[in-house]
Nucleic acid binder design. Structure first.
Lengths: 350, 350
DNA sequence: GACCGGACATGATACGTATAACGTGAGGCG
DNA sequence: CGCCTCACGTTATACGTATCATGTCCGGTC
């Protein structure tokens, strides 16, 4: 079972004799002062260093493999051109895409993004600002990771909130997805298919974005005569979704013909619950998800869901932060979302 | 619900007047020297500072909300107690768990972990060591993120490889999952169920861990008289798995009765392909996955798959790095894996 | 009483960088 | 000729921290 075939070679034993090459070394090699190296490599030498010397500095830097010491640079400059992205546990690809988009937007202006996934386990996050181990210029945080934000109190760092109440005064800027519109599209879709008894498997997370889902659905369904809504709380997860759907489908009163889920994963669980009760999706019960994860097309039938522009979301957040860093007010933005109709929804049964 | 009571204060407009509080400020407040503050907060004051003053230093630090400047500390100390974890694109929760485990192991010794997801898009990674924006003590890298490792050449940073050839001389240490054993368990399971014509949907990624899967499966199946293996390359993804499975099931010769997949996501796609051909899982075709992601129990039937101890994996990697950092040789470790039998596999059809 | 070790406290220093402050000449212009 | 400007270079400094090198005081011991 265990492959014990490799003889124990003790590589890595040398005390890491890493002779860091500094800007002074480059200066010596190029025959100039350390200041000149800094000017050339920082592209600020228009009339301060002769083109010939500038070139030899660049050559020496390349030759020696010079890498500026980020710690020293940060200490000197007071800023790091680095943002921290605080997200809930990375259990889906959604926030990975948000990070990707933020990184891309950041790179355009020489910024970097450090990812901090709020630990899913018990207890609050340790210290995000210690763990990330970078001196930071600003923070972008999902409203789902509120617990980690307590540590931010006291740091004067500008904060951009993702999917949060625009009135929240902790934030220098807010970027939202048009969650309300997504929910309205889901409701309209189901109502147009003739559904009137609708269940809502609502995420049991205390977060603005989920509260908004519930409120919007109430309003969309509440206005229709003869329509009723049954809400069941559900943790995020397949089994939790299965259990919540079971509760919604077997509770008192007539059975719902459609289940709206706050999340694709919960929706996948809901589909399983429907089948375990001997019913079919979508002939007996329609199910909708949210996020359009890879999971949505992995299950059968494929999920009708709301596609969120995750990468744009992250990019917009990063841009808002950089704008705030410039001292300019960042306008609040709301990104459009899109209903994707697939096989998990169909006409209400007669 | 929405509190509209706060008048629109133009927050974020002030030029971020953040008066960083330094160790000197704490010293002034506590009536001691800056050196004393450093000693007390660094827990090195056994006989250097009086208990009374030590306490007043702690009080002052708490009062002023002192946070040591990481950049200055790094510059002075030359190390940061920070590791970079380089992983492929975070499209599944697997590497999120690896990160979680690494963080936990790191925290025990005051280390931190910065996560660097190699961008999934086109082109190689920008500069991991610039992007992570931290001065680093070492690197832990998945063998799947080899492209990002080119940038490591030149930095003298110790490297721990995850799931890689133990002979690779770039690494100071290697930590592996017992992938070979997992594949053998899958093969034994299918052979015991009577399957003889087996398809392998092999990840089309040039990586040691996937090459090992193929080699091991060849050996396990090759030794059985009358058994044959048909291999089809498949990118990671639901649709890619679907297409590859279609190819495997409709190719020349008798149809395979079982499909071994390198990944749960591919397996999910394979299940869809089976059904699109009018066949059933597992009555006509058995399917196995790998990783035991949340996805494995979201699809129907649930996937027989190999569960990997992701958190332990990350923790072992981090511990190996810290051992190497201490100058001690890190013994190569291989972590056991476990076959999880579910509904996607069954007896071979007669 | 001289000496010593230990507890307590501080000043000085260096990590590597970016940039302000300061010099040079050379050439243009009155 | 004086003087200013411009192009080119260097020296000096500060960012905030950890730690080395000193230094003082005090109680004990021969």
């Amino acid at each position: 079972m265990s492959s014990n075939d490799t003889s124990a070679t003790d590589r890595g034993a040398q005390p890491s004799a890493a002779p860091r090459v500094t800007s002074r070394d480059v200066a010596r090699a190029a025959g100039v002062s350390q200041a000149a190296v800094s000017l050339v490599l920082g592209e600020k030498w228009r009339g301060r260093v002769s083109p010939a010397k500038a070139e030899s500095v660049r050559a020496a830097a390349l030759e020696l493999g010079y890498r500026p010491n980020l710690a020293a640079r940060s200490l000197r400059m007071g800023r790091t051109r680095t943002a921290l992205l605080v997200v809930p546990a990375l259990t889906t690809e959604f926030f990975a895409l948000v990070h990707s988009g933020a990184s891309r937007a950041a790179a355009d202006r020489g910024f970097g993004v450090v990812l901090y996934p709020s630990p899913e386990g018990i207890g609050p996050a340790p210290d995000p600002f210690g763990s990330a181990r970078a001196t930071l210029d600003g923070v972008i945080a999902s409203s789902m990771a509120v617990d980690a934000l307590a540590a931010l109190r006291g740091t004067g760092l500008p904060l951009v909130m993702l999917d949060n109440d625009p009135q929240d005064d902790r934030a220098a800027a807010t970027v939202n997805l048009d969650i309300a519109d997504g929910i309205r599209q889901v409701a309209d879709h189901l109502l147009a298919l003739g559904h009137r008894r609708i269940g809502h498997l609502a995420a049991d997370i205390d977060s603005w974005t989920f509260a908004l889902r519930a409120r919007t659905l109430d309003r969309a369904i509440g206005g229709i005569p003869g329509a009723e809504l049954r809400r069941v709380p559900a943790a995020l997860g397949v089994t939790a979704g299965l259990n919540a759907a079971h509760t919604a489908l077997t509770g008192p009163g007539p059975r719902p013909t459609a289940l709206v889920c706050d999340d694709d994963i919960v929706a996948a669980g809901a589909c399983k619950a429907v089948r375990r009760l001997g019913l079919r999706v979508p002939e007996d019960v329609s199910v909708t998800g949210f996020d359009d994860l890879a999971l949505a097309v992995a299950v059968e039938p494929e999920l009708t869901t709301v596609r969120l522009p995750a990468e744009d979301f992250g990019a917009a957040g990063m841009r808002a932060l950089m704008t705030a860093l410039d001292g300019r007010p960042a306008p609040a933005r709301t990104l459009p979302v899109e209903l994707v109709t697939r096989g998990s929804t169909g006409p209400a049964p007669a």
